[in-house]
Amino acid sequence: MHAPEKLLLAAPRGYCAGVDRAVQTVERALELHGAPVYVRKEIVHNKHVVETLRERGAIFVDELDDTIPEGALTVFSAHGVSPAVHADAERRQLKTIDATCPLVTKVHREAIKFAAEGYTIVLIGHAGHEEVEGTMGEAPDHIVLIESEADVDALEVEDERKLAYINQTTLSVDETRGIIARLREKFPHITGPRTDDICYATTNRQAAVRQMADRCDLVLVIGSKNSSNSNRLVDVARDLGTPSYLIDNASQIDEAWLTPDTKVVGVSSGASVPEELVDDLVAFFRERGTQDVSEFEVLREDVRFMLPKQIRQAMTAAAEA
């Protein structure tokens, strides 16, 4: 295997504030209440994180079905849930902690507001993604999902003057910009959120890869296959003509990607990826002879979100006990 001469580590990369908050929520819940703590869906879209929490006593379930005992402590994932899920949890008397990312909650509020005002809402997002399902559940009779500019061309609405758009937080910045432009062109009266729905972390990680990619012969993105924001980082690099692959960890590197011409390898990681997986990848290349490892910093992030109220209150009570 040919070791690259240089590794560039995109910054920012890895954990965003919403993921950090969600993972810490499950960790603190386990510390404060003991195992098991039930989690609806994967807390974040990362295999490593899910496995680590499972080993500590978290039980991941697809739905709030009979596998969760009545009254059990249950955490909702960072991607958000629909009102129907909240109602289901209440009916089963589950003690719930909502770890929905505040930036996803913002999109839910926009959906509720536009629906209350009688708008047809165009949701730009990926069908089947948990975040999209949660958002659509806020106003199912008002929301139409679109995934591409072609979907905009095919879109027909009853009243063009009562039309609004919102979007999934982890989409491609460029692609979404194109879809919104097409919407505005076709429906000049369309209204949107006051501020962009694509979250700061998605935007920043894509910006770092965009600036780094043309200096690289290969870009490796650490992230799980079901992680929307990780997949978009691969797309950003490929759109600029740089070969790029999504890997869960260093063991998934294909030696065929590393030819004698692969001198500089760029590394980034999705917003739900712990830094230890990047460290492992760096160690993998160092062991094979790569000596030059440097950060490619585009900007610094200092966003932090408070933990959910129930966790903060329980931590305070435990400290005072």
Rank of each mutant, 00 (worst) to 15 (best):
A3L: 09
K6L: 08
K6R: 15
A10S: 08
P12V: 04
P12R: 03
G14P: 03
G14A: 08
C16E: 02
G18L: 07
V19P: 02
D20I: 00
R21H: 06
T25R: 06
V26M: 07
E27C: 11
A35M: 15
V37Y: 13
V37T: 08
Y38I: 03
L53M: 10
R54F: 05
E55F: 08
R56G: 06
A58F: 12
F60D: 07
F60A: 07
D62A: 08
E63T: 07
L64G: 04
P69C: 05
A72C: 09
A78N: 04
V81F: 06
V81I: 13
P83K: 02
P83A: 05
D88Y: 12
T96Q: 04
D98F: 13
D98V: 10
D98M: 12
A99R: 06
T100C: 09
P102N: 04
V107M: 13
H108C: 07
E110I: 04
K113P: 07
F114K: 09
F114R: 12
T120A: 14
G134W: 07
M136T: 02
I143E: 08
V144M: 11
I146T: 02
A154H: 11
D159R: 15
N167W: 06
Q168C: 02
Q168S: 10
S172T: 04
V173Y: 09
R177K: 13
G178H: 15
I180P: 09
R182A: 13
I190C: 06
P193K: 14
D196F: 10
I198G: 00
I198M: 07
Y200W: 07
A201V: 10
A201P: 05
T202V: 10
T203V: 06
N204Y: 00
R205F: 09
A207K: 13
A208C: 06
R210M: 03
M212R: 09
D217G: 03
L218C: 07
I222P: 01
G223R: 05
S224K: 13
S224F: 14
S224G: 14
V236L: 00
R238L: 00
P243D: 00
S244P: 01
S244N: 02
L246S: 05
N249V: 12
N249C: 14
N249Y: 13
A250L: 08
S251W: 10
D254W: 01
A256W: 07
W257N: 01
D261S: 05
D261G: 03
T262H: 02
V265C: 00
G270P: 02
A271G: 04
S272R: 04
V273I: 05
F284I: 01
F285M: 01
F285V: 00
E287Q: 11
E287V: 01
E287A: 06
E287N: 09
G289D: 10
T290H: 09
D292L: 09
V293S: 08
S294F: 04
E295N: 09
E297S: 14
V298Y: 02
R300V: 09
M306N: 13
M306R: 14
L307S: 11
K309N: 09
Q310L: 13
I311Q: 03
Q313D: 14
T316H: 15
A317V: 12
A317Y: 11
E320T: 12
